[in-house]
């Protein structure tokens, strides 16, 4: 009986050790992506902003693509694609090329890369035609100027496997999947910083931070707020607040990257 008890305790101890290992790695739940509702009157710039959320969320594009990286990942880097797209294939406009890349990704393979990207309008990604237009607008904005709207007709539109939503009436956009903007609410950044307009709250407005700071400086400003303090603002408040909120324990590397990327994209009125 004593042997049995010792074996039982040993079994429990080993199992608990592995449970501990399981808890030591980053903890994150992954929720199913939700369809983003689009207003019919969105401007190309607004559409590009929604496209950015889709690229980072439901589209899962950044699992394989990078944006502005020194070395590309599994698939080509998308930095500057808005400028390159019009010259990729003879006779193709930038919109045609980008649309084909999304609906027929293996029709043209960038030299040096292997085929393998899935059709984004089919499961498991299953973007709607409207969501694809938003992605195209965003891709155009990477080195170019977005031109597409929800009225733009694409050659392959209508082939989507799941038309889960129709354009919603005017009245706001919703990124239910939770894009970078949602992170600023989640971590209470917007309590002290404005993101969409100039003017200070407790901290300076971030609406033009991308034109003032590089990505590295933004990263440092988040991770070590007191390293460089904006003139006219007291040091210590942000670092104390973030520590109190356990921001540094909670934020994941992917979230941090998304926040930095988003802030770097805020150029003010430019």
């Amino acid at each position: 009986m004593r042997t049995t008890i010792k074996i039982f305790l040993f079994t429990v101890a080993v199992s608990l050790f592995y449970t501990y290992v399981g808890h030591m790695v980053p903890q994150k739940e992954f929720h199913p992506p939700m369809t983003i509702e689009l207003r019919a009157d969105l401007t190309p710039a607004e559409l590009a902003e929604i496209g950015r959320q889709i690229v980072a969320g439901k589209g899962t594009c950044l699992t394989c693509h990078t944006i502005g990286a020194d070395k590309p990942g599994r698939f080509p880097d998308l930095g500057g694609i808005g400028a390159r797209a019009a010259h990729r294939k003879p006779g193709y406009s930038d919109v045609d090329y980008l649309a084909e890349s999304l609906y027929r990704p293996n029709a043209y393979i960038v030299p040096g890369f292997a085929p393998g990207m899935p059709q984004v309008n089919k499961p498991p990604i299953g973007l709607t035609d409207q969501e694809i237009l938003a992605v195209i607008a965003y891709l155009q904005s990477l080195g170019g100027t977005p031109t597409v709207t929800l009225k733009t007709k694409l050659k392959w539109a209508g082939e989507t496997a799941t038309q889960e939503t129709a354009p919603a009436p005017a009245g706001g956009t919703e990124g239910a999947g939770g894009g970078p903007q949602a992170l600023f609410t989640k971590y209470l950044c917007t309590t002290c910083h404005k993101l969409d307009a100039p003017g200070k709250l407790v901290g300076p407005s971030l609406y033009d931070v991308g034109s003032r700071l590089s990505k590295g400086e933004i990263y440092e400003a988040i991770m070590d707020p007191d390293a460089t303090v904006a003139p006219g603002f007291p040091p210590g408040i942000m670092s104390a607040t973030l520590k109190a909120n356990k921001f540094y324990q909670k934020v994941t590397p992917a979230e941090l990257k998304a926040m930095v990327d988003y802030l770097a994209s805020l150029k003010g009125d430019k």
Partner: peptide, 25 residues
């Protein structure tokens, strides 16, 4: 429908393993 955290999965696995070894005993 969501994918739980690895820590949650580890909890379930440990419970399963302990039940299994109880049966094995």
């Amino acid at each position: 429908a969501y994918t739980p955290t690895l820590g949650f999965a580890a909890n379930v696995i440990t419970i399963t393993v302990l039940i299994f070894f109880s049966f094995i005993a």
